[in-house]
Simulated scan of single mutants.
Amino acid sequence: MNSMYFTEEHESFRQSFRDFLQKEVVPHIDKWEKEGTVERFIWKKFGEMGYFGLNQPEEYGGLGLDLFYTVIFLEELQKINSGGFAANMWAHAYLAMTHVNKEGDDRIKREYLTPSIDGDKIGCLCITEPFGGSDVAGMRTTAIKKGDTYVINGSKTFITNGVYSDYLVVAAKTNPEDKHRGMSIFIVDRDTPGISSTKLDKLGWRASDTAEIAFDNVVIPAENLMGEEGKGFPYIMQHFALERLVMGINAHARAEYAVDYAVQYMSERQAFGKTLDKFQALRHKVAEMASRVDMCKEYNYSIAKRLNDGQYVVKEASMSKLLSTKMADEVIYEALQLLGGYGYMEEYPMARLLRDSRLGPIGGGTSEILKEIIAKMIIDKKEYKPAT
C-alpha cells in the first residue's frame, strides 16, 4: 500500500471492487468484446454498489469521496483486460456526469445525475466532430435559439457510449461567429427526434459502442442549456484536466498489468533448461519496463492529489497523458514480445491489450496537440484559467 496517498479504507475498497469485477464482469467480457455491446444489467449493478457516485455530491445520491477512490476505480478496470468495457464505465462517470454535476442546475441534476449514479441512465459526452478532431474551438455543430427552444444541427464522432446511452451532453455553437466564446453545453434526451447514431468499427475497445452521431433539426427546451450560454469552451477546457489524468492513470494501470502478467508467464515458461525469468537480457528488460511504469504512476498520483486539493493542473494532466500513454504502448509492446508466439494469440491477454492501448495517444487530445498545449505554457508562458 502506498501510504502517501492510500489509506486502509482505500485499500479495502480496492479489494472489494476487484472482487466485484471478477465475479460480476469478467465472466461476460469475452461476450461483450465479441458483440460490441455491454449489457444494461451491469450498469445497474455498478449503480447499486455506488461505483458511479464515488466523487459525486451526497445530496444527489453520490458518496462525496476523495479522488483516490476514483484512481482505484480506474486502475482496477484496466486490469480485467477490456479497454472498451472500462471506457464505457469511466466515460459515463467522468466525462458525461462531470458536466452534469458541474454545469447542470438542480432540476437537471435530479433528472439526470441521480439516475446516472444509480445506473438507471447512461450518458455520453459529445465534443469531437468528423472535421474537427482536437480542434474544439473550430466545431461546426450549432444550437440556435428560437423562442424557448434551441435547434441543434451538426454531427459528432468517436463518441463513447454513443449508441446505447440515454442522454447526450452536447457542445454546440450558440454564436457561430465567435470561435471561443460562442460555444455552449446542452443536455439532450436520446429519444429526441432528429438524433441518429452509427456504430463505428474499431481496431480495439471492441466492447465499447463508439459512434458517429448526427443532429438534424433537434429541438430541445431552452432550460436544457447547462451553465451559462457562451461558456462552453472554458467548461470543456476545465474538465479536460480530469479527462487527461483519467487517461494517464488508465495507461500506467494497463502497463502495470502487462508487466505483472509477463513476469508471471516468465516464471513458468522454460527454455534451455531454465525459466525465462533467469535470462539476464529479459530480466533487465523487465527492470526497465517496471521502472517506467512506476515513474508514471507516482507522477499521476501526485497530480491526483493536487487536483483533489482544488489546484488547476491542466499542464500537469496534459503531461501525464502525453507520457503515460506513450509509455504504456511501448511497455505493452515489449510485454507481448516476452511471451513470444503466445503474445500474438488471442487466448492470451497481450493482443487485446496492445490494440486497446493504442487509442491512448489519440483519444482525449492527440499527443501532437498536447505537445503544442504544453509548449504554449512553457515557452509562450500562456496561462489557462478555470471557468468563472
Rank of each mutant, 00 (worst) to 15 (best):
E288R: 08
L336M: 11
Q264P: 07
S320D: 02
V313N: 11
R292Y: 01
L323V: 02
S324N: 07
A281T: 01
N308P: 08
T325M: 05
E334V: 03
E334L: 08
D329R: 06
L276Y: 06
A335D: 04
L336A: 11
K321I: 03
S320I: 04
K305T: 07
S324L: 05
I332T: 04
D329S: 10
L336W: 05
L276P: 10
V314S: 06
Y312F: 15
L282T: 01
Y265M: 10
Q270E: 15
A287M: 04
V314L: 13
K326N: 09
L282N: 05
F279E: 00
L322S: 11
T275N: 14
A281N: 03
M327T: 11
Y265E: 13
C296L: 11
K278P: 00
M295H: 11
L322P: 06
A290T: 09
E316S: 12
E316W: 07
H284M: 05
R306C: 09
L307P: 04
L282M: 13
Y333P: 00
A271H: 10
V263E: 15
S291H: 10
V263H: 05
L336D: 02
D309W: 08
S324V: 05
D294H: 11
L282C: 03
A328M: 03
Y301H: 12
S324F: 09
S291D: 12
M319V: 06
N308M: 03
L336C: 06
V286H: 02
Q264T: 14
A328V: 01
L307Y: 08
E334W: 04
S318W: 06
D294C: 10
Q270T: 12
I332N: 02
Y333W: 07
M319W: 03
E316M: 08
E298S: 13
M266N: 11
R283A: 00
S267V: 01
S320E: 01
V313K: 15
F279G: 03
L282A: 04
L323S: 12
K326R: 12
